[in-house]
Computed example of a mutant assay.
Amino acid sequence: MLLHLISFNIPYPANYGGVMDVFYKIKALHGQGVAVTLHAFQYGREAAPELEKYCSQVYYYNRPTSLFQQFSSLPFIVKTRDAKLLLQNLKKDNAPILFEGLHTCYFLNHADLKNRKKYIRMHNVEWQYYAHLAKMESNILKKIYFKIESKKLQVFEREIKNVNGLLAISKNDTEYFLEKYPHISTRFIPAFHPNEKVESQAGSGAYILFHGDLSVKDNEEAAFFLLEKIMQGVDYQLVIAGLNPSEKLKTKVEGLKNVSLKANVSNKEMNSLIKNAHVNIL
């Protein structure tokens, strides 16, 4: 079986939630004999030869993120993934297409793809997610951006009406799409991940681990909540590990004796941290 998979970013290294789901999904499909043609938008990450082990072909596309892209009725996360070369490559055969999130759906209803089987992996109810980001954000310009993007995403979501199926990552999202789009086949498929067996060590670990993409406002706020509301008076060490922590978070951690911050760790180091933690906080 052949399958086109369009990823919002390069899914390797698989070191945060979104790309982790994509990468381990590709591995699972490869293990089932599916020949995956991967289309990945490139920004902030290098091309990854590791992906060629599990994909029959890998294409990379530039994602322009200039402010000019904001002057569109389309959501920014969609408009910045409008690579014409992507459409040309999708037209090379008639294989089904899996779109990873609304982000990758610019060509979803293009006339040249009218007769193709199309599925969307829903990582969030995106307009709700961006509305939540707007509430959490203190920077006024970012807050305005998130509010506008939420409204655009709510409108753009209607474009999914003719897809063959939705693959929701959470039960709450599954219920939302089943209720709003009852004519679309929607299934709950939990996040793909590398943990096929229990590898935690016997006995007690020496620390509590919180890990995630720390550049995401939700995750940063969760880290601050742990520091300010949970760790006060707790003797255990807390390790916060993840991508691109802010200066604000770094400064907060510096003054705490029982907290350490590990930024941009490798997959190997992250797996070791998870394995040896006494408590993992997700």
Rank of each mutant, 00 (worst) to 15 (best):
R116P: 04
K84D: 02
V34G: 05
A202T: 11
V279T: 15
A47L: 03
C105F: 12
N219R: 02
N219W: 01
E254K: 15
Y12S: 06
K248I: 13
N124Y: 11
W127K: 03
S150E: 11
H183A: 12
V34L: 07
P11D: 01
S138T: 14
N267H: 08
Y181N: 05
K197S: 15
L113Y: 14
S73W: 09
G205D: 04
E228T: 14
N115M: 12
S72N: 12
V216F: 04
A35Y: 08
L282T: 11
Y176C: 00
K229T: 12
N219Q: 02
L273D: 06
Y236H: 14
E46M: 10
K161Q: 14
R81Y: 01
L67W: 12
L133R: 02
R63I: 00
L273V: 13
Q57C: 06
K118Q: 11
H39Y: 02
K275G: 12
G44Q: 03
S260G: 12
I77T: 07
T65L: 15
M122P: 10
H278Q: 14
L243M: 13
H193D: 08
G44E: 00
N195E: 14
Q42K: 15
Q70S: 12
M270K: 03
K114R: 15
Q69W: 03
V198C: 11
K151C: 11
N164E: 09
S215F: 01
D213M: 02
L85Q: 15
E52P: 00
R121M: 04
H123C: 09
K114F: 06
L273W: 11
Q70K: 15
A134Y: 12
H211A: 04
Y43L: 11
T80H: 01
N94E: 10
T186G: 05
F8V: 05
S266M: 07
V239E: 02
L38T: 00
F107L: 06
H39L: 03
I140F: 14
V36F: 13
F23E: 00
I6L: 05
D21L: 00
A131D: 15
V198G: 01
F76S: 05
H183C: 04
A95P: 09
A134F: 11
K25G: 07
F41L: 03
S185C: 13
H110F: 02
M20C: 08
D213L: 00
T37Y: 10
F192L: 02
Q201E: 14
A40P: 04
N109C: 10
I148H: 09
G17C: 05
G31E: 07
Y176P: 07
Y24T: 01
R45H: 12
L178W: 12
A131I: 09
L2N: 15
R116D: 04
E179Y: 13
G205P: 04
E137M: 07
F107T: 03
T80L: 00
V265W: 06
L133G: 07
P96A: 10
V36G: 00
E221C: 07
A206L: 06
F156H: 08
L74G: 05
G101P: 00
E196Q: 15
L167W: 05
